[in-house]
Structures are given as C-alpha cells and as structure tokens.
Amino acid sequence: MAFLFDSLLSACLLIWSLDPELVNIVWVSLKVSFFSTLIASIVGIPTGFFIFFRDLRGKRMVITVLNTLLALPTVVVGLFVYAFISRRGILGALDLLYTQRAMVIGQVILILPVVTVFTISAISRIDDRYRKTAMTLGAGGLQTALVIFREARFGIVAAVIAAFGRVIAEVGVAMMLGGNAKGFTRTMTTAMALEYDKGEFVLSVALGIVLLAVSFGVNMIFHRVQGRARI
C-alpha cells in the first residue's frame, strides 16, 4: 500500500513540476489524437450524410459493416497499415513507418467508422420534416445538408468526442506504427506500457493520472453534449 501511495505522490509531484518528458508525451498524444479526429471528422461526417441520404444499393450492408468496424481491434489496424507502409509495403518509399503521420493514418482508420456510424445515427434521429422544409423553402442539396447538420449538431459533436476518446486511449496503433520513439512518437499509452515493462511506476502512474483526467474531461463534454441533444 505504501508503494502505491509513494508512486502516486511522486507522480503528482512530476505533474506539478511539469516534467519536460511528461509534457512532451502528453503533447504528442494530444496532437496525434487531435489530427486523427480532425481528419476522421472531415471524411466521416460527410460520408455519414452521403450514406444516409443517398439511395445506395446495399445500404444496409454498408451500415452493418461499419457497425462491425466499431469493434475493430487496434492491433489489426496497426498490422494492416504496417503491411502498406513498412519498407516492403507498397507505400514503403514514403518512409512513414514510426512517424506521427503513420499513427494518424492508423488512428483515422480506427475511428472513421465511429464518426460515420454516430453521424448516421445522429441524422436518423432528426425529423424528416426539416429536410422537406428546407427543400420546399428553396434550399439546394448542400444548403439542405447544412440545415440537417445544424439540427443534428449535438449528436454529431458527440460522435467526434467519442472518436477522440477512442484514439487518445488506444495503444495498439500507436505502438505498432509509431514505434514508441522517445520525444517523437511516444504517447501516454505507449509510454505507460514501456514504463510498466521497465518497472518504473512513477512516470507510468503520472501519465495514467493525466490520461484519466483527459478521458474524464472528454466524457464530461460528451455527456453534456448528449444531454443538450435530448433537449
């Protein structure tokens, strides 16, 4: 018990002193997660609109596949992207492996289904009269989509927050594609795994506290947004 308290106390001191290594790891985690979420949102939200409003053949199948991909294991994504960007892969010449860009690619693949499915779910809860009203009032396709976006905005923001929560806490993609290089691709989760392996609990616990704080903050926002969506 004393060991746990000592670790916790040391971790808190580490956070309080803004230890450069700790700050760098947190910064890399937030940066990579932010860009993955941003790209996944830019692609996933319009994709959700497209799938929902277009009369596509096999639409149900597409949604079923996307739902299945929600539970995609991070190591599978890591392995899949690795096959493309490793030196022997078709994108090997781009020298992406063990870079933050590789991590972003993997994480985008991981959360794209999350953003798309949750966007579809948010739009499907919106009354169809909004669409018909916008159209009869003279709105074009894009203007109508913007009306729906506005009405479904809380649900869509919730989708983005959920996606961010998924990437900030994942370890598989970051480890396999980032390589856990100190100062470059070391994220909170990969650093925790490494420090645990080394038996260095203080940094691990400190990062755990920060990660929990970030997750807690994200969840707080998520529930607030979801709550507003129901109003």
Binding site: D127, R129, T133, M135, G138
Partner: peptide
C-alpha cells in the same frame, strides 16, 4: 428541379421550425 421548387412552396400540416 430546384428552379421549379423555388416557384412553389408547401406548408406542412404540422410545420417544423428550425432551432
């Protein structure tokens, strides 16, 4: 179609207001 649509407007039985 949008050009035709802009000459006609429908008021639904239960109209909905944008938020």
């Amino acid at each position: 179609l949008i050009q035709h649509r802009r000459r006609v407007v429908l008021v639904q039985q239960h109209p909905i207001m944008f938020s």
